[in-house]
Design a protein around this nucleic acid. Structure first.
Lengths: 232, 232
DNA sequence: ACAAAAGTGTTCCGTGTACACCCATGA
DNA sequence: TCATGGGTGTACACGGAACACTTTTGT
């Protein structure tokens, strides 16, 4: 319902879009989800997943919906990155785009399924040329992602329920794109007390086998609530 | 110039606005700039400085221009906060707002001048009721501001050319809204090597007088470039 | 002489970081 | 037996945090 005196007197011709920078972790690599653009101009080129915002959805919900419709990925938690609002960033019309990013565990989803949508996972070091300012968005998002994981021990949603410490370390190494010292890494992570060790081992990647752990969700939530600062 | 195939087929009715969260430091207090809303609905109530984005300006330039037109404040560096895009945040129409914030030295500007624009500086602890989600924006901006100054020793633009260490400390105490230990503060700040001590004293606030310092712009820039982490 | 703000050093503790060897096992 | 990845401990350096007294000077 509109209020009586509700109509603003504005001659605005700005379209609002969202673009999604979706990182995926597949046990060994950090990947980025790209998409073959379906509309002119620039049709057929690689781009981020994005579209115009629908009138009846909040920006964040719109981003989720667009991601779902474009790739089949559902229930992805998206975080706002920032707004890209330069005048001529889109050769078509005046379009501003609100970047959103996320990091997901690729294996939780059907990795082939996205191909039906003309989407594809690219290794983070092998990203093709992207349209418009999308490459900027990706670079900004990587920086944000690193900042984020520095302040919140992630992992829950990126690793299977049971995982090994080497797995966890690989995850962080992928995000930071540099090797970490395993002794320090283990010491630090175990000191957080959010891991529960099981007596089972995973022997798929070594003969000795590595112990499986799982997250202690309660303690994890406590830690987040207290705003713990997780420097690696 | 538009490309031939440039018009997107979109029925979008979303207006794009910016709101500015302007913090000001006046040697003793952190203040917030507010503005009496001039358009219906909610006309006459206190709000942030904001308006719709013009078609021919980038978002950031639009924010600057709006700030200038609404308050007379010119050449203010604005930083994007985030987008407020919920469906019914504005009772008028569907409006999304991209929050921008800044921290300025109030004394560098004419403090009375803003009043001619129906704007006013409020002490950060005495903020009146604000329209829409503006209170949220302010809270988000304070958190951002604290995060920002934690990573970048500010001061340059907020203090006069010559200032005392107690002045500088007051600035940080205002931002963090808590007292700091003067011994630790001085030690930390001086160790950055970005201050140049003069042999003059300021005696306006004590009989003994406090030495005046100025910033060493070059070293300061070096420090920023290296991404120094300034925890207080 | 005293009030009021400026200025100064030390100690302790926690945490980041560097670093090298033994263990368990399947092949 | 050997190759492979898993797992462990120590020593040092640095920075944050707590803490109390002296100095200067106008009144």
């Amino acid at each position: 319902m509109k209020l009586l005196d509700s109509s603003y007197d504005v001659q605005q011709k700005i379209l609002v879009a969202v673009d999604c920078i979706i990182f995926g972790f597949d046990s060994n690599n950090l990947k980025l989800l790209l998409f073959k653009r379906k509309v002119a101009p620039l049709k057929g080129q690689w781009s981020l997943v994005g579209a115009f915002v629908k009138n009846d959805l909040s920006i964040n919900d719109a981003a989720k919906q667009i991601l779902f419709e474009s790739t089949g990925l559902k229930d992805i938690f998206l975080e706002e990155l920032k707004t890209y609002g330069d005048l001529n960033r889109d050769p078509g019309e005046r379009v501003i785009s609100i970047g959103h990013y996320s990091l997901i565990g690729i294996n939780d989803f059907d990795i082939e399924q996205v191909k039906e949508f003309d989407a594809e996972w690219f290794n983070i070091n092998e990203i093709p040329e992207l349209i418009l300012d999308h490459r900027n968005m990706v670079e900004d998002a990587i920086i944000e992602l690193r900042n984020k994981v520095r302040h919140q021990p992630i992992g829950f949603k990126l690793l299977p329920k049971y995982f090994t410490l080497p797995d966890l370390q690989t995850l962080y190494e992928c995000i930071y794109q540099r090797p970490l010292d395993s002794r320090n890494f283990r010491k630090k992570f175990l000191s957080l007390n959010i891991l529960i060790k099981t007596d089972k081992k995973d022997r798929t990647s070594s003969k000795k086998g590595a112990f499986l752990y799982r997250f202690d969700k309660e303690k994890f939530d406590d830690l987040i609530a207290k705003g713990y600062n997780f420097e690696i």
